[in-house]
Design a protein around this nucleic acid. Structure first.
Lengths: 158, 158
DNA sequence: TAATAATTCAGAATTATATTCAATATACAA
DNA sequence: TTGTATATTGAATATAATTCTGAATTATTA
């Protein structure tokens, strides 16, 4: 028992479902949907934010519209011992790096990167990745086509 | 020239930057930040939505809070010919599947999946993936720790 | 069990924001 | 330059957010 357990009831899950689908939904609309008072919705939303159940409200932007056409996954081996993840933390600081996962198996990290094009990916690897210590090797996989990309979670009914 | 080119000016990019950081920011606050009238912000936001520059407003939810503790990447080979991506489309329909990418190289698809635990991943693969035709082989990589996960884009200044 | 405390909620009042619209301004092309 | 389309402003109005209070429910403790 570490005091961090989070218990969410049906109403909370309803709020999360609505906000995951549309973060700009008004409290008033949530209230109508869930048949409660807007003030009560507001209270719950604030609590969900405080408890870090809601991590962020974000607008998903079309990468092509802002000239970020290239998506790549990079597998990286690191010479770091298990337990420390400084390499990962360094990677995480890079804005073009969207994800850093420590994975089971041969390769230590899986890194998701988005840049304008392959040339800028090269630059990023040469200028930025190369300054991060402990990277032994990298294997870059270019995405040719993205069929689905979102991180909507499956929120339980209850 | 296909009429679909999107030209964004400094103001649009400013709006996108603010909304990417906080989708629940008010138009009034955007207006203050960018020194323009709230009504003008509203118009631009609507256009950005129409043009599909803004794809969605979403709340990022802590996966642990809604019992989605397991994250995995699955490499899949498909017997489909290049060009058709029906397998990918089928995969995309599955709610637990967050991403489907067609990648260059040996494996045809990279699939990102989130479930409650390894048992439910097994169930998903046995019950759902197995019904999708043309999948020749899969290689599942379990994520041990996620150091960073977001899809904030690097939005150019101008 | 009874008393107390903590939560949760609804509703009214206030404040702030969204939205609409008409009037200007601006940009652009002929 | 002049006309045309587009974008912006500012005022008015409609909606929504927020605060607060008290009532009701739920948990906690003696």
């Amino acid at each position: 028992m570490n005091g961090t357990e989070i218990i969410l009831d049906k109403t909370d899950l309803g709020i999360l479902r609505l906000m995951q689908g549309n973060a700009r939904i008004t409290n008033a609309d949530i209230a109508r949907e869930l048949e409660m008072a807007p003030s009560a919705v507001l209270e719950r939303v604030k609590k969900l934010e405080q408890k870090q159940v809601i991590l962020q409200y974000t607008a998903r932007i079309n990468p092509v519209a802002v000239n970020q056409k290239l998506l790549a996954f990079i597998s990286m081996k690191s010479s770091e011992g298990m337990g420390s993840n400084n390499t990962a933390k360094e990677l995480a600081k890079i804005p073009e790096v969207q994800e850093v996962h420590h994975i089971a198996g041969e390769d230590c990290y899986l890194v998701k990167v988005r840049t304008a094009d392959s040339a800028s990916l090269m630059n990023l690897m040469r200028n930025t990745f190369s300054h991060i210590p402990n990277i032994l090797s990298t294997r870059t996989t270019i995405v040719l086509e993205t069929v689905k990309e979102e991180q909507q979670l499956v929120i339980p009914e209850k």
